[in-house]
Design a protein around this nucleic acid. Structure first.
Length: 223
DNA sequence: CGGGTTTGACCGGCGC
DNA sequence: GCGCCGGTCAAACCCG
């Protein structure tokens, strides 16, 4: 999850440098305060989405008002803002969660290629991957309840990270949304959640706490 | 018994 | 070509 820590090209594999950056993260914030160990000159955040109308200026920059530990920034593609709001509920709910949303970082990206479908090759299909969105939250717990039902389908040890990465898939029939959850080595209080895809169904367990989150964040728009 | 988790194996991409 | 690595599969297992 090195790239996610860089907030975030979010391409699952290695070569994020192959596509044109629209807004380099380095131009918007110095994210480099933590986990800047992988020497990625290509570490950038993109807001180009395949199939979207991809307003090149469609970024929202959200900065947590309480982020004095680390000056972090949230990058949200405007076209997917609603989606992200929905996803933000991931940060909010679950009575047991005890989440402190001091710092939230979102990176959005178009991935350069399809996920490797081992044993399930989509023959003839173009290798286009859904965009991913990475969230960084401060949380005591790894599993944040966003109202959707997820099934874990994998866990991997991550290089340069003592915490494993968990892979989840939405269990709703026909919904192929995935997410990855990982805790940062350098700040164990931070959980990075990366979403891939859009839910094709309403939220199963409604939560209305997103407004509460927004109240805790300052929102900057580039316009 | 159904649904979710665990975990080792497997696959494909990439760099050397 | 080989090895590394991220991502996925799937059988076994767990639990309500």
């Amino acid at each position: 999850m090195e790239k996610y820590q860089m907030f975030f090209p979010c391409s699952s594999s290695t070569s994020s440098a192959n596509y044109d950056p629209m807004i380099p993260i380095s131009a918007t914030n110095n994210i480099t305060t933590d986990d800047h160990h992988m020497g990625m000159g290509s570490s950038q955040v993109y807001n180009y989405f395949d199939g979207g109308d991809q307003n090149s200026n469609g970024l929202l920059g959200l900065r947590s008002s309480a982020g004095n530990h680390v000056g972090r920034e949230v990058l949200i593609n405007k076209d997917h803002h609603r989606y992200l709001q929905q996803q933000y509920s991931d940060l909010t709910t679950t009575a047991s969660a005890n989440i402190n949303i001091n710092n939230v970082v979102v990176g959005a990206d178009q991935n350069p290629h399809e996920a490797t479908n081992s044993g399930n090759k989509n023959k003839g299909e173009k290798k286009t991957r859904k965009p991913k969105y990475a969230f960084q939250t401060r949380s005591q717990v790894d599993i944040l309840d966003d109202g959707y039902r997820w099934r874990k389908y994998g866990q991997k040890a991550v290089k340069n990270n003592k915490f494993p990465r968990s892979y989840y898939r939405c269990t709703f029939q026909g919904c192929n949304v995935k997410k990855q959850v990982q805790r940062l080595t350098k700040d164990e209080g931070i959980v990075v959640t990366t979403y891939e895809g859009m839910h094709t169904h309403p939220i199963e367990k409604p939560s209305d706490n997103f407004e509460h989150i927004l109240n805790q964040m300052q929102i900057y728009t580039p316009f």
